[in-house]
């Protein structure tokens, strides 16, 4: 086919205007999140003391950290889908690093030193390590499916960003089940729980997001 002929085919392919990628990604994540929400309500459920917990700064800070991760990972995914993304898009996560360090510092100041160990170990770490990845699988699949519309300069990085986004959505649900609110616990175990999903996202992205 001559190039001029190909151009004619491209001009004729006037695809109907689609939803912007950001809207599509938000919708896809929302749909995947609904599946995880059902799974969450059936298998885990909201903690019994949710009322009083909402009034504690540690719980609010926990949800806040997860929320910030969710928002930053979403922006990172959008950035990674562009072919002309500037170098080092991971810099977008810098505010999260600052927040995490701040949260840990506040906890170390607020809590007596003898309790640091028990706060770090918590009561639920194994559940956390398995529940967050399980709650993240469907959102990850949804995010990757939408991100196939993108043209990432690095499919692996874009897949990893999708993994982080999915892990944050899973963690957002799990945060309402888990009794461990200490930043020492959250920073340690939530991060460890996100690792397999980020890796899975990167591996899948490497294949699925090539273009």
């Amino acid at each position: 086919m001559k190039t001029e002929q190909l151009v004619e085919a491209l001009v004729a392919d006037r695809a109907a205007a689609r939803k912007p990628i950001s809207v599509a990604l938000a919708l896809g994540l929302g749909l995947g999140g609904m599946v995880s929400l059902v799974l969450f309500l059936v298998e885990l459920g909201v903690r019994s003391d949710i009322g009083p917990a909402l009034a504690t700064w540690r719980f609010d800070l926990k949800v806040g950290m997860v929320l910030v991760t969710l928002v930053l990972a979403f922006a990172l995914c959008l950035e990674c889908m562009r072919p002309d993304a500037p170098g080092r898009p991971v810099r977008r996560l810098l505010p999260l690093a600052v927040l995490v360090i701040g949260a840990v510092a506040v906890e170390l100041l607020a809590a007596p030193q003898v309790t640091w160990g028990t706060r770090l170990v918590g009561t639920n770490s194994l559940v956390c390590l398995s529940a967050i990845p399980l709650l993240s699988i469907v959102p990850l699949a949804a995010a990757l499916a939408i991100m196939r519309r993108g043209a990432p300069s690095s499919p692996t990085l874009a897949g990893g960003a999708a993994g982080l986004l999915a892990a944050a959505s899973g963690a957002m649900l799990y945060a309402f089940h888990c009794f461990d609110d200490s930043p020492l616990f959250v920073v340690t175990w939530y991060s460890l729980a996100a690792v397999p999903i980020v890796l899975l996202g990167a591996l899948a992205g490497r294949q699925m997001l090539r273009w």
Partner: peptide, 23 residues
Amino acid sequence: LLAMHLKRDTWDEARPIAPWLRA
């Protein structure tokens, strides 16, 4: 050309188009 066509949604109108084409 085919890639530019299929991925044309990834160009953000607020940005210059040259870096996108080059990328």
